[in-house]
Design a protein around this nucleic acid. Structure first.
Lengths: 152, 152
DNA sequence: AATGAAATGTCTTGGTC
DNA sequence: GACCAAGACATTTCATT
């Protein structure tokens, strides 16, 4: 990860569909050099994929929430099973397994508040290991589009 | 948003760098048709951008946490000011403004636990409007790579 | 709206420094 | 590693249906 690699990563985070030529022009290197760098970054697992960012409303997920979930007992097998269960639910965008706390946090996206309520009562509350949850509707989310590499 | 649009969105979520030709072949339409659809989706704001997914360790953010923050007073101006402040911090990947609750949740990524501690004490605790926060280190995060469109 | 075909531009390889 | 050049391939425009 020299500075050229870091720059490539930054530019592809901002716009994953720019051509290899454009990338090379911006960086002041030959296209073939740039291409080989990108391949190497991909081989090494630094670049994990390329994804289109889609408007949440178009995905019918205009209502989003964070749901902090408590489960018991906190054994490895119960934690793993709940993690798998939650991650497979279509409403769940992201599952955070938290150490230190006793909790999961689920980032949920649904069409409307009705569907949020249905999710909580029909999906979550029915699991025997779930002993409680707190739901916070997301009023606004500000996403950092291009997380920079932090200095050591 | 007919079915062809939905399919395009789904495929570009999974792989934003596939060529327009490949997209068209998969969908069974002409490349020019496919291109025009993608442009229309972009014009309408359905496709908001294309981003490379980068390994968190390579960005020096091997340690991540969710920080639930309480602020007072809960006036519009104080909320907006804190939202702007938090979102501009390099350690903050995402800022959730929560209605219903009285809280923000910050998704934070830092190189190590020392830097997490520094962030909490030097950045957050120094703000006068911050009356408290709870930090949960993220043990694991399972991200849904391709959030499907939910039925109405 | 969708298509085919042509011009324009890009990707990618292999040889060279 | 980085670069150049050239053939293979993709993008994009536009006239047509």
């Amino acid at each position: 990860m020299d500075q050229l690699d870091a720059e490539i990563v930054r530019l592809l985070q901002a716009d994953a569909r720019q051509s290899n030529r454009e990338l090379a022009r911006t960086l002041g290197v030959a296209p073939s050099t740039c291409l080989e760098r990108v391949r190497s970054l991909t081989r090494r697992g630094v670049i994990r994929g390329y994804h289109a960012e889609i408007d949440t409303a178009a995905l019918n997920r205009g209502v989003q929430a964070l749901v902090a979930v408590q489960i018991r007992p906190l054994s490895r097998s119960v934690i793993d099973a709940f993690s798998d269960f939650a991650s497979a639910l279509p409403e769940v965008l992201s599952t955070f397994v938290l150490s230190g706390g006793d909790d999961f946090v689920l980032h949920v996206g649904v069409p409307d508040l009705d569907r949020l309520h249905m999710f909580l009562t029909d999906r979550l509350a029915k699991r025997r290991e779930v002993t409680g949850f707190r739901t916070s509707v997301i009023f606004k989310q500000v996403h950092q589009a291009v997380p920079e590499r932090l200095p050591d």
